[in-house]
């Protein structure tokens, strides 16, 4: 049994998303392991970003269930029971369960602790790098400022909490090598730095699941390697599962523990990178049906393997 089957963090069942007549995601089921880096791959237009948007609450799925268990392994009867009550989330013997399809986006980030980045980077460009990381800690700081009331009057321990938040932000900046640029506007950073900053910002929300939409897009080989190290460290040191969409096969094959392949909104393969690489359906659908192209991509995969 694979880890995503024995200890799933997120279980997606029968997810379907329709836009008018267009079916972007069709009856998709997969699991995200608690200690895994899971990659969601597929050709352009396969519905990967739509899945992301459903997981992070930007779209309401037409059908399906997305159950996230924050602690422990969610027992099937508990999930069924919660689904029956109509509640968005609840405590059970097998831990807190969150039904993401019922929760608005900000609650998913705040309560279920799912953070994300975007395909086209969405930083607060007119705010400094440090401010970006503080906004990410909004909900904790909001509580500390007595929901603004105490903060305006200068009562309570807001100052200390803010200091702690700054310290956390600084430690992340140190980690991604942007400490020198803490006081520069985020919009002034080069592209690769912006990508890393966006990941750090998402991490400042203390997520249990981090969703990355094409994190390696536009990165040069050196930056791509740094990204791999960063993602591994996020999984190992911060106990955060990673779900990523990626086109760069070297990244996917090297760092992921689990790969899910989509084509035309349907799952065509699901397994370890090894299994996926040898799956003929994946080669046909994702890597292209032309023989030369298959060879080309196989060569690329081999190179990625040698590199790792």
């Amino acid at each position: 049994m694979s880890s995503w089957q024995t200890d799933p963090l997120l279980v997606v069942e029968h997810l379907t998303m329709r836009f008018g007549g267009l079916v972007a995601v069709n009856n998709l089921s997969f699991s995200v392991g608690r200690t895994d880096i899971t990659a969601l791959i597929g050709p352009n237009g396969a519905g990967k970003t739509t899945v992301f948007n459903c997981v992070t609450g930007f779209y309401k799925p037409t059908e399906g269930r997305l159950a996230l268990a924050r602690q422990g392994i969610a027992a099937a009867p508990d999930v069924e029971h919660l689904t029956g009550t109509g509640a968005r989330h609840g405590k059970s013997n097998s831990g807190n369960i969150y039904l993401l399809e019922r929760m608005p986006g900000h609650e998913i980030a705040d309560k279920a602790r799912v953070a994300r980045t975007f395909q086209n980077i969405r930083l607060f460009t007119g705010m400094t790098v440090l401010e970006n990381l503080l906004v990410a800690q909004h909900n904790a700081l909001m509580k500390a400022s007595g929901y603004t009331v105490l903060g305006v009057l200068g009562i309570g321990g807001y100052k200390a909490k803010e200091k702690a938040a700054v310290a956390k932000a600084i430690s992340w900046l140190d980690k991604i090598g942007l400490l020198d640029r803490a006081d520069d506007p985020a919009g002034d950073l080069p592209y690769g730095d912006q990508r890393r900053l966006e990941i750090a910002r998402a991490m400042c929300t203390d997520p249990i699941l981090l969703c990355l939409d094409e994190p390696a897009a536009g990165l040069n080989p050196r930056e791509s390697l740094e990204l791999n190290a960063l993602l591994r460290s996020i999984r190992n040191d911060h106990n955060t599962a990673v779900l990523l969409i990626e086109h760069d096969m070297s990244v996917v094959m090297e760092i992921s523990d689990h790969v899910v392949v989509l084509d035309y909104g349907t799952k065509i393969a699901d397994g370890t990178p090894q299994e996926i690489r040898n799956d003929p359906r994946v080669i046909a659908a994702y890597l292209g049906v032309e023989d030369e192209e298959v060879e080309e991509v196989e060569a690329e995969i081999d190179m990625a393997e040698k590199a790792s």
Partner: peptide
């Protein structure tokens, strides 16, 4: 205060705000 930073973040990018758990 956090609320002020959230206002400005909202002006910068509302979608990013939602992804960070800001109501």
């Amino acid at each position: 205060l956090p609320v002020g930073r959230a206002w400005e973040a909202l002006r910068e990018d509302e979608i990013a705000c939602r992804s960070l758990g800001i109501n």
